[in-house]
Design a binder for these strands. Structure first.
Lengths: 184, 184
DNA sequence: TATAGATTTCAGAAATTACTGAAATCACGG
DNA sequence: CCGTGATTTCAGTAATTTCTGAAATCTATA
């Protein structure tokens, strides 16, 4: 398979960015290829398009599945596995945020809770307090994320578009500005 | 310098998580050490505490400065450089978000804009549209981030604490629910 | 401008991570 | 349960990243 300049450019960029995003080049390129593909692709399609070894592609697909970033599809009378990315970009964003939280934040929160439980000696009092403060901040942010994660996409997008207007709900000291709802 | 069990545990955790956060073990441990330290530390303090080579610590500090995660301090009549982390955790969170955006998102946005400018041939029409859709979504999110970044911390925390209540501003279809403000 | 302490640079060693090809395993149709 | 094609595993190699020690550079002061 030979790729258009547009696809090549996009795919190479994702390969290069991979390391910054916590995935490797192969995984980045495979994802980019699937993201732009007009139809589901099987592992050998990916090998043909990108030139990685079959086993490397297999690993990359496994990794993408563990991130929940690709969907497995089957065609009738074909036992190969085909892969796609979700059409809905917001679904992809939600998945990315969920997964990064799970990998980058949750283990630290667990550790901070564990450390918060201990009783520090005098020399560690300030450090212990700082750990507790960090734990509380992360708990606050994850609670907020849990709240937002329950919203429908439309509601989320609407809030996003409000942007700076959201600031009018509270004053600079963080006090809620009382509002009264009119009938809709 | 020998570290308490509390500090050791915290520092080792940050070292291990480093790779997931896009920094290396040394940088992670140096940051954790500074984060808990009661007073500013100089490079040799860090060498004594963590056992890395002097040059490695120098690199790590340079890296942390490039992330804007540490502050440089001087003591009178001492020409060594001392380092601290900001006391305000929200300042740290803002820095982390800014820096990750700069490293992980902005280069991709630039690339997507570049690719959006091209005129695709027929076979790339769908891929080009998908790239444009992704670009728009990222632009929307970064605009939102720009808006929020201007808020005072208190305002931000208040919004965070509103959590699910924010959903009441818009209905499930993303339409704004008209509100009328009462006098404060 | 010489010197002494502090910091940085850099080439190579060590450690880690990514990638491959071959062999093993799996899964379905006959 | 055998054969065929698809997929995964795994041991070894390649590539990359991290870390060190020595040398170079910087900077304040005498």
């Amino acid at each position: 398979m030979n790729l258009s300049a547009l696809r090549q450019d996009f795919i190479l960029h994702f390969g290069e960015m991979g390391s910054r995003w916590g995935i490797n080049r192969t995984v980045g390129q495979v994802y980019a290829l699937l993201f732009l593909a007009d139809d589901p692709l099987c592992a050998d399609d990916i090998v043909a398009a990108l030139g990685f070894s079959r086993s490397n592609v297999s690993m990359a697909l496994k990794e993408l599945q563990s991130w929940n970033l690709v969907r497995l599809r089957h065609k009738t009378d074909d036992r190969r596995e085909f892969f796609t990315t979700p059409d809905d970009l917001w679904e992809i964003v939600r998945t990315l945020i969920d997964q990064r939280r799970k990998r980058e934040i949750d283990p630290t929160l667990t550790k901070l809770r564990e450390l918060s439980m201990t009783t520090p000696d005098a020399a560690d009092a300030a450090a212990h307090a700082r750990i507790a403060e960090l734990r509380e901040l992360i708990e606050q942010m994850t609670r907020f994320h849990d709240d937002l994660a329950r919203f429908e996409t439309e509601r989320l997008v609407a809030l996003l578009n409000m942007g700076a207007k959201l600031g009018r709900l509270v004053d600079g000291a963080g006090r809620l500005i009382p509002i009264r709802r009119t009938k809709t």
